[in-house]
Amino acid sequence: MNERKNGMDNNYADDASFLETIKEIENSLESVEQHAPVYTPNLEWFENIVIEKKQQLRKKLIFDVSIFSIVALLVLSAVLFMLYNIPVVFFALQGLFSISIIGYYSLRFIKQVKET
């Protein structure tokens, strides 16, 4: 009985010191909040940041769209070149891709069925 009571006393002491630690953490963080100096720049400074970032985003968008268009044009030219000049290769590639896709999904399906 005494052991149990001592155990409970220890728990209360633990809880108390736990709460005390939390209080100490809160007070310390409050002192940072109150006393750490923070200089807030003027509105124009923030506006410049917004303008710069927007310009940066616009440049990135133009770059991405350009790269996408160039790659798309290259792929399209290659496909059209093959279709009109070497149709055998074009249709062979079409067939090969179709078979590969069907094969890949069939294998995946079989694997899933086996796992379950």
Partner: peptide
């Protein structure tokens, strides 16, 4: 609206920096 963005940041800057000071412990 760029001005609206600037005003939002201006209002929240101090709160944000103070939070980050506590998290990073480095001004």
């Amino acid at each position: 609206d760029k001005r609206a963005f600037a005003m939002l940041f201006h209002q929240n800057y101090s709160f944000l920096v103070k939070y980050l000071m506590k998290v990073t412990m480095n001004p």
